[in-house]
C-alpha cells in the first residue's frame, strides 16, 4: 500500500510502548498492532484523533504517502 504508518517511529521518539498507547486511547492492543504493522485497510477519524491527541502530533507525523512503482508485469 502507498500509505505507510509511522506509529513505531512516533512511539520510539516518545519512548512509549504500544500497550501504554492502547490503554491511553482505549483501543485494543490487537487493533493497534494491526495499525502498527501496516495490515490495516482503513483508519477512523476518531482513532486518528485519539492517537494524535495523546501523542501530541499531527496526522502527517503518523501517516506518510509513498508512491508505489508501477508493476513491471503490466
Amino acid at each position: 500500500m502507498a500509505i505507510i504508518i509511522r506509529l513505531d517511529v512516533a512511539l520510539a521518539q516518545r519512548k512509549m510502548s504500544l500497550t501504554e498507547l492502547a490503554e491511553a486511547v482505549d483501543i485494543t492492543l490487537a487493533n493497534l498492532s494491526i495499525l502498527k504493522t501496516g495490515k490495516a485497510k482503513a483508519i477512523r477519524f476518531s482513532t486518528l484523533e485519539a492517537i494524535c491527541k495523546h501523542l501530541g502530533c499531527q496526522p502527517g507525523d503518523i501517516l506518510e504517502y509513498y508512491p508505489e512503482e508501477p508493476s513491471k508485469s503490466r
Binding site: 487493533n31 493497534l32 494491526i34 495499525l35 490495516a40 485497510k41 482503513a42 483508519i43 477512523r44
Partner: peptide, 8 residues
Amino acid sequence: KEENDLTV
C-alpha cells in the same frame, strides 16, 4: 467484513 475487520 474483511475490510471492516482491518479498519482500526
